[in-house]
Design a protein around this nucleic acid. Structure first.
Lengths: 145, 145
DNA sequence: ACGTCTGAGTTCCTTGAGGGAACCCCAAGC
DNA sequence: GCTTGGGGTTCCCTCAAGGAACTCAGACGT
């Protein structure tokens, strides 16, 4: 489908993929760690990891003489974490409940506990759902995308 | 699971939900429009719409004397579109191919074709995967979240 | 009064993906 | 040479997605 959302979902749209990516992001890099932390079936974990490697968002690397491997984010994968960070911000705001957010994020640049906000890459002002007009682009083929 | 990503995925984690949300965002608000545009089965579309209504991200409204309904984003839903906008930015950058992005977004504030960028809500500087430190928060229960 | 059209779903059947548990391979270490 | 432990495969079984047909309710034309 000619839609960047659909294409992105082709990479992280399957049920477990975002959680796998998050775990790798925060440092769970080995197969057994991921399986234990997520409670995912080993079969599906294998499939998802292969898929993410195929799409170039993670890389499979040996870390021992023995056949031991770890998974690390590529540059493409690190940028995909942006999507997760926005999910965190939204989930913290709308779904955290009385206990408060389960995880906090300290921003290195300012040292404060914070969360992400969206701005226009061009002018730097806030950019949200109602702040844009949707137009067909060069790669468009059908009515929508 | 005590993880804001997992909780967000409970709302838009099922395969079609993000695409449904996108369609409603860009103005496809009726059942028949959504079904035709997405090619989703009517059964699953019904389930997804009900689920999104239950979670409070869209609202079902009659628009006629006859039993005709349209779906519109709530405030909660409009903020969830932030996630889609980041997916668009990432998909445009990494998956658009030679044809270029299928859809363009004009930012009302500056009038330019642009895309979103992530900044720290506290200090306004860029905030991405490597710019944060992850700490357990008040709502934490287990090792990770 | 009657058929019909249209939007908005339901129902039923069939297929494919996810869960679970067990099994396999290989290298080190004892 | 037997065990251990990480990193997967294989097999079966259930449940969710797809597809096509059916339903229902209110307007509208005649």
């Amino acid at each position: 489908m000619t839609c960047s959302i659909a294409r992105t979902l082709d990479v992280i749209g399957e049920p477990w993929s975002p959680l796998i990516l998050r775990d790798i992001w925060v440092g769970f890099s080995r197969f057994e760690q991921l399986q234990a932390d997520l409670g995912i079936s080993r079969k599906v974990l294998t499939e998802r990891l292969n898929h993410l490697v195929d799409r170039g968002v993670i890389e499979r690397r040996p870390y021992d003489q023995r056949p031991r491997y770890e998974y690390v984010l590529t540059a493409k994968g690190r940028e995909l974490v942006d999507v997760l960070m926005v999910m965190v911000a939204w989930g913290d705001k709308w779904l955290a409940g009385t206990a408060g957010p389960p995880v906090l994020y300290r921003h290195h640049a300012c040292g404060e506990i914070s969360h992400v906000d969206l701005v226009c890459a061009h002018c730097g002002k806030p950019m949200h759902a109602d702040d844009v007009e949707v137009l067909p682009g060069p790669g468009a083929s059908r009515s929508t995308a």
